[in-house]
């Protein structure tokens, strides 16, 4: 029991929580934005993988770290465009199209990576983002090292969650997105073009997903390897439901989730050996499923989610 308290009382845990949460925040926001407009994007896992690969590769070839992020975001938007053509223009099954995008984006990532970086004993590395201590705040005892000595993308992710919460609920654009997700026919009657809104939301959302992936290779680690996304994309999809499609709750959900994840990582070292490590690694996935089971009925799903919109059809 005291071991548990020791873990929670260590600043290292809380610093890790923010680090673990960052890709989840970005990915969840991306999925949320897309779903708010009525399009489920299961391409997330593959788009994250591609973002991680292309962001890393850009930096490896001499781009600076922020350019790497930008390249990842643009590439993500292109995959979003693909998903939007399939699901918005053609109105295909969002489930199947998204899985197709995931399979394509991840295999394409591995292909490009293998072409660009021949097989080597140790994977090549880049110099990732370094933590930036926020002047003043980072000197505070405990709170400082725990919360105010993160890498820049973490601060950006948290800021983005707040910006998105404002955008979705306090601006005309956000209203248009939500209307399109609830009732595209009504949106159209108000002079909003649901097609344009959905294209925009899916592409912007996919850009966020790719940035989530890029965080893994540009900040959390310093190299790319296949399967490194490890289902984080699917966890984000679950977190959107848990957050009831609200950006501020997505932020909280991701942090809560990251807390459990960071906690289990440290518990592993404490209990080391006594309990198989795989049991700990299962926790995030099982938690996601549990969160879905608890929240699915209560959550207010956007009413037009997964329904293609065809002008002139009922």
């Amino acid at each position: 029991m005291s071991a548990v308290l020791d873990i929670i009382a260590s600043a290292g845990l809380w610093a890790a929580v923010l680090r673990i949460a960052t890709p989840l925040i970005l990915g969840t926001l991306g999925a949320l934005l897309s779903e708010r407009s009525g399009v489920l994007n299961l391409g997330i896992e593959g788009i994250m993988t591609f973002g991680a690969m292309i962001g890393w590769l850009s930096v490896y070839h001499g781009a600076d770290l922020w350019t790497g992020f930008l390249v990842a975001a643009l590439a993500g938007a292109l995959f979003g465009l693909l998903h939007a053509v399939l699901t918005v223009t053609l109105g295909l099954s969002q489930h199947v199209s998204g899985l197709g995008v995931t399979l394509f984006a991840s295999s394409f990532s591995y292909y490009v990576f293998r072409l660009a970086v021949p097989v080597a004993g140790t994977p090549p590395t880049i110099k990732p983002f370094q933590p930036i201590a926020i002047p003043g705040l980072s000197d505070l005892p405990f709170v400082g090292p725990a919360f105010f000595a993160q890498t820049p993308p973490t601060y950006v992710a948290i800021l983005l969650a707040l910006v998105l919460a404002y955008l979705v609920f306090r601006t005309p654009l956000g209203l248009a997105i939500r209307m399109t997700g609830e009732n595209p026919h009504a949106a159209e009657a108000q002079g909003i073009n649901p097609m344009v809104v959905r294209y925009g939301a899916v592409m912007a959302g996919s850009a966020l997903m790719a940035m989530a992936g890029a965080f893994l290779t540009l900040s959390a680690f310093n190299s790319f390897f296949p399967t490194m996304v490890q289902g984080r994309g699917w966890i984000c999809i679950a977190l959107v439901v848990f957050a009831s499609w609200r950006p501020e709750r997505a932020l909280l959900g991701a942090l809560l989730f990251a807390f459990f994840d960071g906690f289990q990582l440290r518990l592993q070292t404490v209990l080391g050996g006594a309990v198989p490590y795989q049991l700990f690694l299962m926790i995030p996935y099982i938690l996601s499923i549990a969160a879905l089971a608890v929240m699915a009925r209560r959550a207010r799903v956007p009413q037009a989610l997964m329904q293609p919109y065809r002008r002139g059809e009922r």
């Binding site: 399939l86 053609l90 295909l92 199947v96 197709g100 394509f104 394409f108 591995y110």
Partner: peptide, 12 residues
Amino acid sequence: DVIVALSLLTML
């Protein structure tokens, strides 16, 4: 893997 994934998308 790329060919197989692309086949899914083109099939759709």
